[in-house]
Design a protein around this nucleic acid. Structure first.
Lengths: 201, 201
DNA sequence: GCAAAAGTGTTCACACTACACCCATGC
DNA sequence: GCATGGGTGTAGTGTGAACACTTTTGC
């Protein structure tokens, strides 16, 4: 997860999720996209509204309603200069500094939503580069769901969906043998979705 | 679903979901409960936040952010006087007049959420009286999920969960033979939930 | 006695789980 | 040649789906 050191009071210099204020002429979705772009330079990434927070005293200075969103970002494809400028830093979900206000709850909700989503939609692919290996995909799902998958069962199920196109390339960065690279077959996915389909890994 | 005839412009006299304005000193949850009580007299019912709507022109008169909630109400246990006073009326989900603004989308989201919830939590019981029969429960789930369940499989699964307490009473209002009444065993449910449990019907 | 809904058991297919060995390669 | 991670098949088990007949009782 990408977090920032808050630049103003209250809670200045403590860790926080990235956020900003809604403008008069923009929708909630637009605001979320704008704020993500300002901090990471990214556009067009997977993003979803989570929950509206409205407790009266959640911000000690002013009455504030926050609408939380979560986005899925490929770790290596954001603008590091922008992130540095805002004091942003990556942490693992299992080990991160404590967060201000109710942001901890936002993280909980985001994780829960992400886990449920991965059971019905193949959004895991949003977090991987265009070409990826099966072991990469597997360890991503293991991180999301904090569990381990049997390599044989995992690839069996994956192949039975026929959602991946095998390439003639190998990724040799993690083993001597090398693992085949695959691409996500978007057309095939649209077909399957249209005919009512469940993506459970 | 319970809908009201809107009493003010814009869209005066058209059908709408019930709504109201957030006060300075109340949380979103508090506001939702207050508004439900004002219109139906009900308190302490199952209620859940759904989604925040923030498109710039969704209300043609003023910039408005709406946070939608859905509640589960036992059809026969609300205050009919209050409802009448506000011009409220019940409709079935499959046949209702068209709704103002983005309220149609709110209904879609509520239905989707309700369907997903019934797979992991026994919230269907929130919609039934304290004592109910298996056929009643079954037809409720058939209405929620717009499908039909095999009576044998349905009650088999239900009994295997051991969440219901069979009473020595019968409900004879729908058949000559009469159907046994059951109660939901809340203690048993808490036990099961604590030990990680999935309620799929 | 008949109509109408309630109640109940068995079989089959498929999906999920568990599990162990060979392969390719760089060093 | 050996260490390291990648890749694959099978057998057993449990869960979900399909399916038909008997029971009760008010009229």
């Amino acid at each position: 997860m990408l977090m920032i050191k808050r630049g103003f009071e209250p809670e200045k210099d403590n860790w926080s999720l990235m956020g900003g204020f809604l403008k008069q002429d923009e929708s909630l979705d637009d605001a979320a996209e704008r704020i993500l772009e300002e901090l990471t330079g990214l556009t067009g990434v997977y993003m979803e509204q989570l929950f509206a927070y409205g407790d009266v005293n959640r911000d000690p200075i002013a009455r504030t309603i926050s609408v939380s969103y979560y986005a899925l970002i490929k770790v290596d494809s954001y603008n590091k200069e922008l992130a540095k400028l805002h004091g942003a830093k990556w942490f693992t979900v299992t080990q991160h500094p404590s967060l201000i206000f109710d942001h901890e709850d936002m993280v909980e909700k985001a994780l829960g939503r992400l886990r449920r989503r991965t059971r019905t939609e193949p959004i895991g692919f949003e977090l991987l580069p265009e070409k990826f290996t099966i072991p990469q995909l597997r360890s991503l799902y293991e991180a999301i769901n904090q569990t381990e998958y049997d390599p044989r069962n995992f690839s069996k199920k994956l192949h039975s969906m026929k959602l991946l196109t095998k390439l003639d390339e190998k990724d040799k960065s993690t083993s001597r043998k090398g693992a085949y690279l695959y691409k996500f077959d978007k057309n095939r996915y649209e077909e399957l979705k249209a005919s009512g389909f469940n993506f459970g890994l």
